[in-house]
Amino acid sequence: MNIFRLSGDVCHLVAIIILFLKIWRSKSCAGISGKSQLLFALVFTTRYLDLFTAFISIYNTVMKVVFLVLAYATVSLIYFRFRKSYDSESDSFRVEFLLVPVAGLSFLENYSFTPLEILWTFSIYLESVAILPQLFMITKTGEAESITTHYLFFLGLYRTLYLANWVWRYHEEGFFDQIAVVSGVVQTIFYCDFFYLYFTRVLRGSGKMTLP
């Protein structure tokens, strides 16, 4: 465990909690892509199957369980409890365009051709693109509430910090995970445009982020 990894995990947790509380307290999921949240629930489910096969640490187990529970709780708020506020018309990204290539790639490019490994690889690839329905929704409606942008900021920062973690681990431990690193770089690139808008628009004032 190093400082980049720990702060990355904290940012990830903060992001998920921000989103959950935003929906819970406003009793509305307006502006939130249910499809992105479903994809993240799928990411955690396929990646954390190792909860049943390998014990790493209390920290590891607790975080995995918390991420899983919060992911499904968020999905259920969007699709059940507050579904009247769900803007399904704006959430029109075709997820099959992500799921099919990601599933295909995880069969082709993995560390070993076993069910658990393929699902782990699938989760890594899927995570790198899972935010696209949310970004697409913001582009389509042309705006995002500032609380939603804070969620996206912490979610983007999490994988960016993991990149620093991987550089650290490579130097300190000689550990290099090609699949995770390449996917992590791709994932971070998707946030670059958002980061720019976040710093130039959200943090300098206006309540909402509006697109040019």
Partner: peptide, 10 residues
């Protein structure tokens, strides 16, 4: 094997 390291990351 790098497996334990990978399963360590979230």
């Amino acid at each position: 094997s790098s497996d334990p390291v990978r399963h360590d990351e979230l």
